[in-house]
């Protein structure tokens, strides 16, 4: 089912947190609300599920206007960051609770609970209480409980934040699998760009209550709308380099790069160069000294202090013989240089 927010505004007392936000999530799509803390992504989520009232604007599930429908009647499944399982109920009772509220017959509830438990693969843990379950298992119970009503929309609020790194990887794939299998429209709220990029069809990147870019992960990575977007996506992060655009791009006091095609401005700008676009594999061009090497197993990160000012980061396969203090002369992939105005707007 398609979800549509129109001119959504939210204020807490005199403070307006979100102003006139529009967002459409396609039917069966998984959308990420990504942003740093305090950007308004959780507020948006709470408004969609009905826990917060909207100060202005409208919300549609398909053609149904649910703006003033109470949360209980909205048909939204939510998975909370701390799972919010009911501590005094077993996993089975937790999952079945929404149906119990709907006064479904017991046999029907039992059948449905079993179906959902199988979907999230916890069929043999149903008689345990939350305290007896691991974090990942609790997560699955929470997911099953959110899905059992066959909701129009599934909302996930930082669902992986409380898991350790290994489980996080596993649950990332699990949640995506379950979402694909059920074809449910889903919104993932997260501050972790890796989660957003790996799990979602599209990402809405938010900052200060506004969506700064809405795009597929690939395009957002390759074609960021602003310096903020470029800096937020990518791990290891992009390097920014002040430059002066003239005939060529002057870097620091002594070095130059060729001017990329299509760049029309003159004067001070900021270049964004991702680590994979700087290194010996791109030939030569910029002189500098290696000031930092961080082995990461499969690859290593290398920071280069450029002669005349500026630092660029490169990512090299492990085994490259570069050492701290080495003098290097590495090239930049010219077609992949991103240029921003000094205000951070993409040029």
């Amino acid at each position: 089912m398609e979800l549509r927010l129109e001119k959504f505004t939210k204020a807490f007392g005199p403070v307006t947190v979100i102003q006139d936000m529009d967002l459409t999530v396609g039917s069966g799509e998984m959308m990420a609300l990504l942003g740093p803390s305090g950007c308004g992504k959780s507020t948006t989520l709470f408004a969609i599920c009905g826990i917060h009232k909207m100060t202005g604007g409208r919300l549609y599930f398909g053609d149904r206007d649910v703006t003033s429908v109470p949360a209980q009647q909205r048909s939204v499944g939510v998975v909370f960051q701390n799972y919010a399982l009911y501590p005094h109920m077993t996993a089975e009772q937790n999952i079945g609770f929404p149906l119990k509220v709907m006064r479904q017959p017991k046999a029907e509830i039992a059948k449905e609970v079993q179906r959902l438990a199988d979907l999230v693969q916890i069929g043999d843990l149903l008689d345990r209480r939350p305290a007896q379950l691991s974090g990942g298992q609790q997560q699955r119970v929470a997911l099953a409980r959110a899905m059992i009503r066959k909701p129009d929309v599934l909302l996930l609020d930082e669902p992986l934040a409380n898991l350790d790194a290994k489980l996080r990887l596993e649950m990332r794939a699990e949640i995506r699998r379950i979402q694909r299998e059920t074809g449910i429209t889903a919104i993932l709220v997260t501050h972790d760009q890796v989660e957003a990029m790996s799990m979602c069809d599209r990402i809405a990147l938010m900052r200060d209550g506004k969506i700064v870019q809405l795009d597929t992960p690939e395009r957002m990575y390759a074609d960021p709308a602003s310096q903020f977007v470029a800096g937020f996506l990518g791990n290891p992060p992009i390097s920014f380099l002040p430059a002066r655009a003239g005939e060529q791009l002057a870097i620091g006091q002594s070095q130059v790069l060729p001017r990329p095609a299509g760049l029309e401005v003159q004067g001070d700008i900021v270049l964004g160069i991702r680590p994979e676009h700087f290194g010996p594999q791109h030939g030569q061009g910029l002189h500098g000294e290696v000031i930092f090497v961080e082995p990461q197993g499969r690859e290593e990160l290398v920071d280069v202090q450029l002669d005349g000012g500026g630092i660029l980061r490169a990512i090299l396969p492990t085994g490259d013989p570069v050492k701290l203090g080495d003098r290097v002369n590495w090239g930049v992939s010219g077609g992949n240089i991103l240029a921003f105005s000094t205000e951070g707007v993409r040029l």
């Binding site: 949360a71 009911y86 501590p87 005094h88 609770f97 959110a146």
Partner: peptide, 27 residues
């Protein structure tokens, strides 16, 4: 009592009274 428990209850379709009686009181 964590707010999320109540929020989850509301999302699961329970009235505030029912949330209080069935979900919060046991805590």
């Amino acid at each position: 009592v964590p707010w999320e428990i109540e929020m989850a209850g509301v999302q699961d379709g329970a009235s505030r009274f029912r949330v209080w009686w069935e979900l919060v009181m046991p805590q």
